[in-house]
Simulated assay, not measured.
Amino acid sequence: MTRIISRVAGQGAYLPERVLTNAEISTFVDTSDEWIQARTGIRERHVAADGETTADLGHAAALAALADAGCGVDDIDLIVVATTTPDLVFPSTAALIQNKLDMRHGAAFDVQAVCSGFVYALAVTDGLLKGGVFERALVIGAETMSRILNWEDRTTCVLFGDGAGAWVLERAKGGKAGLVGYDLRSEGRYSGLLKTTGGVSSTQSSGVLTMEGPAVFKHAVTKISNSMERLIEREKIAIEEIDWFVPHQANQRILEGVADKLKISRDKVISTVAQHGNTSAASVPLAFHQAVNDGRIKRGDLCLLEALGGGLTWGSALVRF
Rank of each mutant, 00 (worst) to 15 (best):
D87N: 05
D102S: 15
F90R: 09
H105R: 14
L78Y: 14
L96K: 02
Q98I: 07
S92A: 15
N99F: 00
T93M: 08
R104Y: 14
F90W: 13
M103H: 13
V89Q: 00
A82F: 02
D87V: 06
P86A: 03
M103P: 13
A107Y: 07
A108C: 07
L101N: 15
V89K: 00
T84Q: 05
A95V: 13
D87Q: 06
A82D: 03
Q112N: 10
L88T: 05
T93V: 12
T93A: 11
A82M: 03
M103V: 13
L78H: 14
N99C: 00
F109D: 05
V80C: 09
T83R: 03
P91I: 08
T93N: 12
A107H: 08
L101I: 13
G106C: 01
M103R: 13
G106I: 00
S92P: 05
A95K: 02
T83E: 01
F109V: 04
A107W: 11
T83K: 02
S92G: 07
M103G: 12
D77L: 15
V81G: 04
D77R: 15
V80E: 08
A95Q: 09
I79M: 10
Q98C: 09
A94R: 03
S92E: 04
M103I: 11
Q112S: 10
L88E: 12
Q98N: 11
L101P: 11
I79W: 02
L78G: 10
D102C: 09
I79E: 07
I79D: 05
T93H: 07
G106R: 00
D102T: 13
F109H: 06
A108G: 09
R104A: 14
Q112W: 05
L88G: 03
Q98W: 09
I79Y: 05
L96A: 06
Q98V: 07
I97Q: 00
P86T: 03
Q112R: 08
D110F: 05
F109L: 06
D87P: 04
I97N: 00
A82G: 06
L78Q: 12
L78W: 13
A94M: 07
Q98R: 10
N99I: 01
P86F: 04
T85K: 04
D77E: 14
Q98H: 14
A108I: 08
R104V: 12
R104P: 09
G106K: 00
L78F: 15
L101Y: 12
P86G: 04
L96M: 11
V89R: 01
I79C: 09
L78A: 09
F109N: 02
T83G: 02
R104C: 12
Q112K: 09
Q112E: 08
A108N: 06
K100D: 11
K100Q: 15
A107I: 09
T85D: 04
A107S: 10
R104S: 14
S92W: 05
V89C: 00
F109P: 03
D110E: 05
I97K: 00
H105P: 07
S92L: 08
H105M: 11
G106Y: 00
D77I: 11
A82Q: 01
L101D: 12
P86W: 04
V80K: 08
K100N: 12
